[in-house]
Amino acid sequence: MDFTRRFKQISEFSFFIGPIGLLYILFFIIPLGGSVLYSFTDWDGLQKTFHWIGFANYVQVFRADENFLLAIIFTSKFAVLNFIFINFIGLLLALLVDTKLKSRTFLRTVFFSPNVLSLIVVGFLWKFLFSSVFFEIGKTHHLPFLTFSFLGNPDSVIYSIVGVSVWQNVGLAMLIYLAGLQGIPSELKEAMRVDGVNKFQEFMKLTLPLMIPAFISNVFITTTQSLKVFDVILALTNGGPANSSQSIAMNIYREAFTNNSFGSGTAKSIVFCLMILMITSLQFWILNKREV
């Protein structure tokens, strides 16, 4: 009887989990294994044959590929700026639309609507604004700061890309923080107000600790999105000027599909994957201890 019940449980579990597990193996495990294998070869992505070269691709990544190191520096700067602004502005917007404003529903829609757009579409839209609209407005109304080459200056291009990314992604961060705010029991807020606690103390002592799950979600989402940034840069600058806005993902793409060096490209992708895994694991370890 126990065997029959156990077999039934395993069959039901396999029926629901089996298709998902099969798709996971086909589209994640097998490609990942293939990437690891090709990273130790000189395969160009075109020929049927390749040669085993060991760790030569990994050695080249760190010793001889200056563009990859520059891409790491750019991606790190972009990730830090993007992370800070998205979470800070997202929290402020969540606090705003959580009030009793009559227009709060409209504001939630307005703030979140850019998030439903493709980053490629967003990139081309803002490229048109930067290169044509802002320039013409500045020229017509004698506003020199609008005629500045936002995407053509190597020193300032990162801030333009961060601004576009924040505009597109801040709505999702706002929504997650808003869910965290609305999940705080009103009884706790009323009890603190009865005790004479002001708004700032309530926010620091009650709101922030109970919003740690929302912070964890936003930290993971914004970190991984920032590190894997590709499409918005492709649409805005294509990595220019002079590779000053080339991200790690774009460097890997060019190595594999432009230079036809799949072995080196997959080695970079493995290194990149390990970097993201280490960063997100560290974030989870730090934030998980603070969760209430």
Score class of each variant (00 low, 15 high):
residue 1 M to S: 12
residue 5 R to S: 14
residue 7 F to V: 04
residue 9 Q to N: 14
residue 11 S to Q: 11
residue 13 F to N: 10
residue 14 S to W: 10
residue 16 F to W: 12
residue 29 I to W: 06
residue 32 L to T: 13
residue 34 G to T: 02
residue 35 S to K: 00
residue 35 S to P: 02
residue 39 S to D: 00
residue 44 D to I: 09
residue 49 T to D: 05
residue 49 T to P: 00
residue 49 T to K: 08
residue 57 N to I: 11
residue 68 F to C: 15
residue 81 L to E: 11
residue 83 F to C: 13
residue 88 F to C: 00
residue 88 F to G: 09
residue 90 G to R: 06
residue 93 L to F: 07
residue 98 D to I: 07
residue 113 S to A: 04
residue 113 S to F: 08
residue 116 V to K: 01
residue 122 V to W: 02
residue 130 F to W: 12
residue 131 S to F: 03
residue 133 V to M: 05
residue 135 F to P: 07
residue 138 G to M: 02
residue 140 T to W: 02
residue 145 F to M: 11
residue 147 T to Y: 04
residue 148 F to S: 08
residue 155 D to V: 11
residue 156 S to M: 14
residue 156 S to W: 15
residue 159 Y to T: 00
residue 160 S to V: 01
residue 164 V to F: 09
residue 170 V to W: 06
residue 177 Y to A: 08
residue 177 Y to H: 14
residue 178 L to H: 06
residue 182 Q to E: 11
residue 184 I to Q: 09
residue 188 L to I: 07
residue 189 K to A: 13
residue 192 M to C: 15
residue 192 M to I: 11
residue 195 D to N: 14
residue 195 D to Y: 03
residue 201 Q to Y: 07
residue 205 K to P: 04
residue 206 L to V: 12
residue 207 T to M: 10
residue 211 M to L: 11
residue 214 A to P: 09
residue 217 S to Y: 13
residue 225 Q to P: 01
residue 229 V to P: 07
residue 232 V to Q: 11
residue 233 I to K: 15
residue 235 A to R: 02
residue 242 A to W: 07
residue 246 Q to C: 07
residue 247 S to W: 01
residue 248 I to A: 01
residue 251 N to H: 12
residue 253 Y to F: 13
residue 254 R to S: 08
residue 254 R to I: 02
residue 255 E to Q: 15
residue 259 N to T: 13
residue 260 N to H: 15
residue 262 F to K: 13
residue 263 G to P: 04
residue 266 T to W: 03
residue 269 S to N: 07
residue 272 F to W: 04
residue 274 L to Y: 09
residue 275 M to S: 14
residue 275 M to Q: 12
residue 279 I to H: 12
residue 282 L to E: 02
